[in-house]
Design a protein around this nucleic acid. Structure first.
Length: 795
RNA sequence: GCCCGGGUGGCGGAAUUGGUAGACGCAAGGGACUUAAAAUCCCUCGAAGUUUACUUCGUGCCGGUUCGAGUCCGGCCCUGGGCACCA
């Protein structure tokens, strides 16, 4: 069948150009550009969020290829995780089979959508050859004293007898059983990220190519604060209780001590007092997420003890509160109703007096709210009259002298709990031996592989119930011993994958020494939802890898591009909300290039993109016009059009600027403008021909198939150099001078650049539209922005 | 509750960062071509005023700084993301 010249067939175009669009990865060479998009969880569903992220990455890769960089742009799979276990239970399918099937499906969609990643370096985190190095890393962390065990609070479903993820707790109830969730403490593995708190904070200053908002979020999350540790003695109990506060200046306004219900003092009381024991159990009914605790009602119970303030020597009651968790800080806080909103609400509920001890110099109605600002101390005995700052220092000094406290830097950041009571994850390479205690698996025995012969009876204990896995021998004394049966948090999997991508098949090292120069990642692209946790964990592990000498740079990601959400009906597209739009349907109708253009054009990359179906039509129409023009193009005639050439140069410089700023929505607009010049020109002369070349190169990263198909240059577009801007033509571009009177636009003047200020005013006075606003008034002031604007201020 | 964003025509957004508000596109309306439709092309398109001109108003709301504010400052409202076991 003959293809009509006005037919635009995107699939035909894609099929004919796809082969040439995969570029070979180039590693460890000068002028490298490591461009990485956050690897996907293989859910099997390639959704718009994926399409957006990977289109951005593929587009930037192609742009940098035309700029002469050696681009490395690998792709792989974040393949462990909860959904595979849920699917296993629901569909009776093994997580491995489910995951592998999904990877295959999603890989096909990558190709279908014309996303040309470097698949030679593909990896998946559930592959033992991948996770053996994670186990190796963990052992290194353990050897350096950065991995340890302690109790931590989890969501416990008392009916299903299982630990729940925060997202599995809905309105305080287990998602399957519907039973009220309880807090439970279990022993777990932690990584001492807090040892790196200062390093991670200090390096924030060097993240100059990260969005400021993300750096701010990271700093706030680490949350370094100066405060004071204070020791209270508990009256009638041979015990003390430590609290930490950043507002020691309010200490004399403290009306109570509030402890976590699982605090040792509470537990001691509950042993002899069943009534309080029951009240404490009540206080532990709710999930552990901060959002739930902070937004929920603050409840407490007096546990019948009093504590002695080491400064005022005053006795205050001791409460247990549902908003204090044992694993944060000391598990105890002072309650100062007058100067803390949360304490104020608590005090109102339990009729605790509100006594102001700080005055900020303004009237404040303490019957309505707390006053949280600093100021001068009042009602504070010997401290009265000091400023908040002086009081904090004085209190720290006094406490230190009597060994009842001290000034201390504190971090909001907590150590990273990495134990998960789940099957589908990387086994923790630890062995418990009756003789030797906790022993890491020997490196020679790595990887500790996840057994595949399991049954899905009870998801929290799948590994524990697998004797072949559990029973082993101690690497030290060779006596029978038992394996750790928890698996790692999947955030660990994604904290170092960017390093492994350099040499995923290397068997002697985590990174082959010959390619370590591939790090850091030059441009990292991913969703804003990862702004804190994933990026902080990855930075931490990278700092550690740097410290043990396996990565050259300190920081893993030089530049970060955080892509906004893809929203539909105002909220995040996700499977659980049932508002998915699949790219494959759109591809079927419009092809890969139209979909790419729409995704890029609809919003700037960093802003959220509200999905709307119309609009992709326009991209399709644009490509159709391009196709029609180039498949019926006229022969080139002699002659030049200087005005069009300088217009094109202005657009080109804007496109270049926008690519560098990652403002890809306006690069699309720029290409459309270039094409409008081409199409609207009455003749196809040599100027137009040159603009066509610029158009193809500029469009290539955005719509690679269509541009490649109609390109007839010597080399493929990916190897064709970016056009050099004709500075002279750019300079010739002139804009009229805007004339304002009293800040309002009253006209514009076309004049050459040499015009002086007085010449311009003269001309303005002669121009009718401007004249009438100047008549009968005297000029008080003139603001002149050369080449742009003149503002004449009149009385 | 705490931390970080966003709010501009009917819609998505632009404005080279304090200097012409609405680029580019979608939708809509009108016209051309066609037996007709689709496709394509051309024109109009923030609001108001007796309307190619001109004037006034207009970037969530209220106030401020400035010759000049979408952009900076203060205070609100609405909305999105994160809050440590979703990834």
């Amino acid at each position: 069948m003959q293809i009509m010249s006005n037919d635009y067939n995107p699939h035909n175009i894609q099929n004919q150009t796809a082969a040439q669009l995969f570029a070979k990865p180039k590693l460890n060479v000068a002028n490298k550009k490591y461009i990485l998009a956050m690897f996907p969880y293989p859910s099997g569903q390639f959704h718009m969020g994926h399409a957006r992220c990977y289109t951005l990455a593929d587009t930037m890769s192609k742009y940098y290829r035309t700029r002469g960089f050696n681009v490395f742009s690998p792709m792989g799979w974040d393949a462990f995780g909860l959904p595979a276990e849920n699917a296993a239970i629901k569909h009776n399918k093994h997580p491995k089979d489910w995951t592998d099937g999904n990877i295959k499906q999603m890989r096909e969609q990558f190709d279908m959508l014309g996303l040309h990643f470097d698949w030679d370096h593909e990896l998946k985190t559930c592959d033992p050859e991948y996770y053996r190095w994670q186990q190796w890393l963990f052992i290194k962390l353990y050897e350096k004293g950065l991995a340890y065990r302690k109790n931590a609070t989890v969501n416990w479903d008392p009916v299903d007898q299982t630990v729940l993820a925060n997202e599995q707790v809905i309105d305080g109830k287990g998602w399957r059983s519907g039973a009220p969730v309880e807090r439970k403490e279990i022993n777990q593995w932690f990584l001492k990220i807090t040892n790196y708190a200062d390093a991670l904070l200090d390096e924030c200053e060097h993240l100059t190519h990260w969005p400021e908002q993300v750096v701010t979020m990271q700093k706030n999350w680490i949350g370094k604060s100066k405060g004071v540790d204070i020791t209270f003695s508990i009256i009638g109990l041979d015990a003390t209780c430590q609290v930490y506060t950043t507002r020691a200046d309010t200490l004399l306004g403290a009306q109570a001590l509030v402890l976590a219900p699982t605090h040792p003092i509470c537990e001691a009381v509950s042993k002899t007092n069943p009534k309080i024991a029951q009240a404490l159990t009540q206080l532990s009914q709710s999930g552990v997420s901060e959002a739930e605790i902070e937004a929920g009602e603050k409840l407490g119970v007096a546990i019948g003890l009093t504590a002695l303030c080491p400064i005022s020597k005053r006795e205050i009651p001791v409460y247990a509160g549902n908003y204090v968790l044992m694993d944060y800080g000391h598990g105890a806080v002072i309650m100062v109703p007058a100067h803390c909103d949360r304490d104020y609400a608590f005090a109102k509920r339990y009729q605790i007096p509100v006594i102001p001890v700080v005055d900020n110099g303004k009237e404040h109605d303490y019957s309505q709210s707390a006053m949280t600002e600093t100021g001068t101390l009042i009602n504070s005995a010997q401290l009265t009259g000091l400023s908040s700052q002086e009081a904090i220092e004085e209190i720290a000094k006094t406490l230190a002298a009597s060994q009842q406290g001290q000034a201390k830097d504190q971090y909001r950041l907590r150590d990273w709990g990495i134990s998960r009571q789940r099957y589908w994850g990387c086994p923790i390479p630890i062995i418990y031996c009756d003789n030797c205690g906790i022993v890491p698996e020997s490196e020679a025995n790595l990887p500790v592989t996840l057994p595949t012969n399991i049954t899905f009876s009870d998801s929290s204990k799948m590994l524990a119930n697998n004797p072949d896995f559990v029973n082993t021998s101690c690497p030290k004394c060779h006596q029978p011993a038992k394996r750790e049966t928890d698996t790692f948090d999947t955030f660990f999997d994604s904290s170092w994958y960017y390093a492994r991508f350099l040499s995923p098949k290397e068997s002697n090292d985590l990174i082959a020494p010959s390619v370590t120069d591939g790090l850091p990642v030059d441009l990292y692209i991913g969703g804003i939802e990862h702004a804190i946790l994933h990026l902080l964990y990855a930075r931490f592990i990278h700092h550690f890898m740097h410290d043990i000498g396996i990565t050259p740079a300190k920081e893993p990601f030089k530049e970060l591009l955080t892509q906004g959400m893809v929203l539909k009906d105002g909220s995040k597209m996700s499977k659980s909300k049932g508002n998915l739009v699949t790219p494959s349907e759109l591809h079927k109708t419009y092809g890969a290039d139209a979909l790419r253009l729409f995704i890029l054009f609809a919003a700037p990359p960093s802003q959220s993109l509200e999905w709307c179906h119309s609009g992709i039509e326009g991209m399709h129409r644009f490509l159709k016009k391009v196709s029609l023009y180039f498949s019926n193009k006229q022969p080139v005639s002699e002659g030049v059009t200087p005005k069009l050439w300088s217009d094109a140069q202005t657009i080109l410089s804007k496109i270049e600027h926008d690519y560098e700023k990652r403002q890809l929505n306006t690069t699309v607009a720029g290409c459309m403008k270039l094409f409008n010049i081409i199409q609207q020109s009455p003749v196809r002369n040599t100027t137009i021909q040159k603009i066509e070349e610029i158009f193809f190169i500029a469009l290539f990263p955005l719509a690679p198939h269509t541009s490649s198909f109609y390109w007839d240059g010597e080399k493929p577009l990916s190897e064709t150099a970016w056009p050099k801007i004709d500075q002279e033509a750019l300079q010739q571009q002139t804009r009229p001078i805007v004339v304002q009177v009293n800040g309002k636009r009253r006209g514009e003047l076309n004049l050459n650049k040499e015009c002086s200020e007085s010449d311009i005013i003269h001309l303005a006075q002669e121009t009718l539209s401007i004249q009438k606003h100047l008549e009968g008034k005297s000029i008080k002031r003139v603001i002149h922005i050369p080449g742009k604007l003149i503002n004449i201020v009149v009385s």
